[in-house]
């Protein structure tokens, strides 16, 4: 693996170690070794350059998340009290072709209000989205979120 590609990931993982374990010297030696091993695994699982992120749209998406979490949590809490449920599956065909980007989007969408991806439909190939209320515009909100999510990637 080229050292330059490994460096940002190593620094990021070491930063995670410092946040969790503190920055004392003894701990840092173990942390550096752990971060090096984690970097090796990380690059094996997701080679450098596969996901090229654009920092500003990514920041916008992350800053928007707490509001989305508030909406999602409040919606579920309300439904837990009044049991206004109409659960079911809504087929959704993502614009993004099967890839790491698509998997990342589906993971992200499982944290969005009212949607939970539950695998692909074998016949149509569309992703089955489980919704607590299928009368809501689930597919439209997935499409809007996918467009927003796609902006964080270059190219």
């Amino acid at each position: 693996m080229p050292p330059l590609a490994a460096l940002p990931r190593f620094v990021g993982l070491l930063a995670v170690w410092v946040v969790i374990g503190g920055a004392d010297l003894k701990g840092l030696a173990v942390g550096a070794a752990t971060a090096a091993i984690a970097t090796w695994f990380s690059l094996r699982l997701l080679p450098a350059g596969v996901l090229q992120l654009r920092p500003l749209p990514l920041l916008g998406l992350l800053l928007r998340y707490p509001l989305q979490a508030l909406r999602a949590g409040t919606e579920v809490a309300c439904r837990a009290f009044d049991l206004r449920l109409s659960p079911g599956f809504v087929p959704y065909a993502p614009v993004t072709a099967p890839s790491v980007q698509r998997d990342a989007f589906l993971t992200w969408s499982s944290l969005q209000p009212g949607t939970l991806p539950a695998g692909e439909d074998e016949v149509s190939g569309a992703v089955a989205i489980h919704a607590l209320d299928v009368t809501q515009p689930v597919a439209a909100s997935m499409a809007a979120e996918e467009a927003r999510f796609a902006r964080i990637f270059r190219g």
């Binding site: 979490a69 439904r79 837990a80 009290f81 659960p87 489980h130």
Partner: peptide
């Protein structure tokens, strides 16, 4: 509220919404 949803929602998939969303916010 998430725990209430876990107990009251009718199926596994609906209960997952309670666990991932209400508990996450909590």
């Amino acid at each position: 509220a998430g725990t209430l949803g876990l107990l009251r929602f009718p199926d596994t998939l609906s209960r997952l919404h309670a666990l991932t969303k209400a508990d996450g916010l909590g």
